[in-house]
Write a protein that binds this DNA or RNA. Structure first.
Length: 217
DNA sequence: CTCCCGATAT
DNA sequence: ATATCAGGAG
């Protein structure tokens, strides 16, 4: 009975999202896997719009891993400063590019276990790159939006991104993983917002625990 | 669990 | 003025 409720909730969310977000695209701007990797690393704890404003300049100077390596720490840090954590991110970027050149001929690896070894790359970043640059569904990117939506709606009762991702992967068909993540991020940004969620216009309020608890119809 | 950091909403 | 936003490493 409880399990049936959960399955029903997943089904309703998947259907509603399929209708409202049939083809969700990343807010991040990129033209190739390398650019996406860089952009997603920069997007940690930072809005996509701010990343875009930085990468627009950055990608004029940086076409591949070699360009990052060649660049001085100061120049790289200055270019990415508005995204926050710029020293860490500059270090991650350089570390990534060294590994890319050393082990992958300057290309981006296409497996989760390899991507996750790159400095500054966790499962969220890896899943994002795999799904959106290569169309490979090897995980579900659980960022703060996916986490919040999953918890509020009642798709997972766990707290960590890892456990939430496992719950989601258990209930969502693998070929939908990337789509679901993109759609949910969109939904979290536009409707199920952190500060002031717009439950009135939410397509999944009928099955949403958060909406019920906050006095929903 | 703490540290890394800038920008915007309140 | 200050709370909040938004991932990964050590």
């Amino acid at each position: 009975m409880k399990n049936a409720d959960l399955e029903n909730r997943y089904g309703a969310v998947l259907n509603a999202f399929r209708r409202v977000y049939p083809d969700p695209k990343l807010a991040l701007r990129f033209e190739n896997p390398f650019q996406l990797l860089v952009a997603v690393i920069l997007s940690a704890q930072c809005t996509d719009e701010r990343v875009n404003s930085v990468t627009e300049e950055l990608f004029k100077k940086v076409k591949g891993p070699e360009d990052i390596i060649r660049m001085s720490d100061e120049e790289l840090e200055n270019l990415i400063r508005p995204t926050g954590y710029y020293r860490q991110k500059a270090k991650s970027l350089k570390g990534c590019c060294e590994v890319l050149l050393k082990n992958y001929g300057g290309e981006i690896p296409t497996r989760m276990d390899e991507l996750v070894k790159l400095p500054g790359v966790g499962r969220k970043t890896a899943a994002m790159v795999l799904g959106n640059a290569f169309g490979i569904n090897e995980g579900i990117a659980v960022d703060t939006h996916v986490r919040r939506v999953a918890q509020r709606v009642g798709l997972s009762d766990h707290d960590t991104p890892e456990k939430i991702e496992q719950d989601l992967m258990k209930h969502i068909p693998r070929d939908l993983w990337t789509w679901f993540s993109n759609a949910t991020i969109l939904h979290g940004r536009n409707v199920c917002k952190a500060r002031k969620p717009n439950c009135g216009e939410c397509p999944v309020k009928e099955v949403c625990r958060f909406f019920m608890k906050s006095g929903g119809v």
